[in-house]
Design a protein around this nucleic acid. Sequence first.
DNA 1: CCAGGGATCCGG
DNA 2: CGGATCCCTGGG
Length: 204
Amino acid sequence: MSKKLPNIKLKKSFYRKDLLPVARNLVGKILVKKHGKNFLAGMIVEVEAYNGDFDQAAHSYGRKTKRNEIMFEDGGYLYVYFTYGAHHCCNVVTGKKGQGTAVLIRAVEPVSGIELMVKNRFDRKLKNEKEIFNLTSGPGKLCRAFAIDKSHSGTDITGNEIFLTSGKRVQKDEIGTSKRIGITKSVGLPWRFYLKNNPYLSRK
DNA sequence: CCAGGGATCCGG
DNA sequence: CGGATCCCTGGG
């Protein structure tokens, strides 16, 4: 008999702490988005931390603009941006007002609402069983599957549309660390955190 | 490996 | 305004 884990919505206080601990703690949490009367849900398996103070890869580095201003709010908001003319990327704002810190959600493991995610992402059924591993295994892919776009930037993620829940208990030794992917500045910072051996990572 | 694709930012 | 850049992805 397995005891069902409590799955409780994360509160503001979870996000309003230092960037790196929050980033590591986000691994294993569940991203939930209300989609009509259904819910899409995926367990976060890969994240990257960004800190505008000294990290030149962060959008908040050195400037506050219309696009990134939400990054300078208190933790607990979504920051979504559009890039390469095709893809959205979804970040969780962390820390205290004025800090400019956020965590990019790079990959999730689909948990529920999977058929809807497949429809959003491919506009067809899965071709084969392996394709599920291509559904949400990247920041642009998961935004597509969850139908998250710029209109969701600034969403309070302690509300009822998009939020995170407590999810799975993850031990420290289950979390891997590496350099971040796809950046050209501040490349040395080991600020990518992921669930080791998870098949839904953006890079295996 | 490479290029599409368009928002965004900066400098003039 | 032009030009460079971009926290990516899919298709060779």
